[in-house]
Design a binder for these strands. Sequence first.
DNA 1: GGAGCGATGTCCT
DNA 2: GGACATCGCTCCG
Length: 202
Amino acid sequence: MLPRSAYIDSPDVVARRLLGKLLVRSTESATLIARIVETEAYLGTDDPAAHAFAGRTARTEVLFGAPGHAYVYTIYGIYACLNVSCEPEGHAGCVLIRALEPIAGLPEMTANRGLAAGARPAALTAGPGRLCRALDITRAEFNGIDLTDASSTLQARDDGFAVRDRDLAITGRIGVNKASERPLRFALMGHPCVSKGKFHKL
DNA sequence: GGAGCGATGTCCT
DNA sequence: GGACATCGCTCCG
């Protein structure tokens, strides 16, 4: 289990730290496991691209709370996106989970995505909307849950997977209109589940 | 393979 | 009323 202390740092630090860690989603019938391979940092009230930029509202309340909690929101009316709150309580930084590598429970993820059996694993969880569908993460059920709680049906764990510095890639944010030039998107270089783009070596 | 576009909930002005 | 941290389908090459 990743302890709460792992989330207390600034979003860019936590975004790098989360690469290579596991997301564990427990359902009634299966345990779905996937490794985090792409993240994006949002810097809170100082970041024009962040939801928290507009201030503390009912919607962004989770972001201002204790670190290590899930912030799930709906985008374009259809898709859910999963973030993890970081920084000390009262500060609104967060990290968006952009892509995962499926490790266990691939049949369930494939079914959740509505894909045919045998679909490419890289297609299951590459993209923030896709990975929420694959892991059955909804705003109604998961917004505000504690990822460090052993009883949570969504947890973050460290299985000892080592990420070398030379495997880290960094680039500007995508899908964002404001402050997109900031180098706040992190990924494992060359990983098949990471969308292609102009990543630089860190 | 890549560009264009529609679907559609929730929040804020 | 408009914007939005997306995706998958279409059409065109």
